[in-house]
């Protein structure tokens, strides 16, 4: 089977009903895509197929033959907003344990610049996070997509900076 993953063509011998998630992690060594639930509930396994966010645990690999698959490893090369998202997640405390983060970033990638809070919530409705309580994730995505290049530093960043200063 000929697949295009992160812009690179790969010829793989895999069963057609194998989950795209397993093919990515086990046959391609791309372990950035996480498995949370294996039943479409958590979104940790989100990848883009021809630009559209899907749960890779629910996609048989046969369905992506001839498609462009993008995983978190290829996000930065595929979409300009990926780097901004990464920075904003650091800045605004959008990641704690991090298991949901690749899925959150992949689900946020199709959003357009300047997306509203409602649009962000709709895009991320299929992604669960056990740590952050979501607000800091929404803040991160909003900041990354806001047209204003640099806003004021977030409260998390300020708190971190002062804790850092105290420690020193």
């Amino acid at each position: 089977m000929l697949l295009t993953i992160n812009g690179r063509q790969r010829r793989l011998t895999v069963p057609p009903m194998a989950r795209l998630l397993d093919v990515l992690r086990e046959d391609c060594g791309l372990t950035g895509t996480k498995e949370g639930c294996g039943e479409g509930e958590c979104g940790a396994c989100t990848v883009l197929v021809d630009g559209v966010a899907v749960d890779s645990c629910l996609v048989p690999v046969a369905h992506v033959e001839g498609c462009q698959v993008v995983t978190i490893e290829g996000a930065a090369a595929a979409k300009r907003s990926a780097k901004a998202l990464q920075n904003a997640f650091v800045e605004h405390g959008g990641a704690q344990c991090g298991i949901c983060t690749p899925g959150m970033i992949m689900a946020a990638l199709p959003l357009k610049a300047g997306a509203s809070r409602d649009e962000i919530k709709t895009a991320l409705a299929g992604n669960l996070c056990r740590c952050t309580g979501y607000i800091s994730i929404f803040n991160s995505v909003e900041a990354a997509l806001s047209p204003a290049k640099k806003g004021p530093p977030s409260r998390v960043a300020l708190r971190r900076a002062s804790a850092h200063a105290r420690r020193r």
Partner: peptide, 9 residues
């Protein structure tokens, strides 16, 4: 129905 990923498939 579901979230965006489920609606897309």
């Amino acid at each position: 129905i579901g979230g965006a990923q489920i609606q897309n498939r």
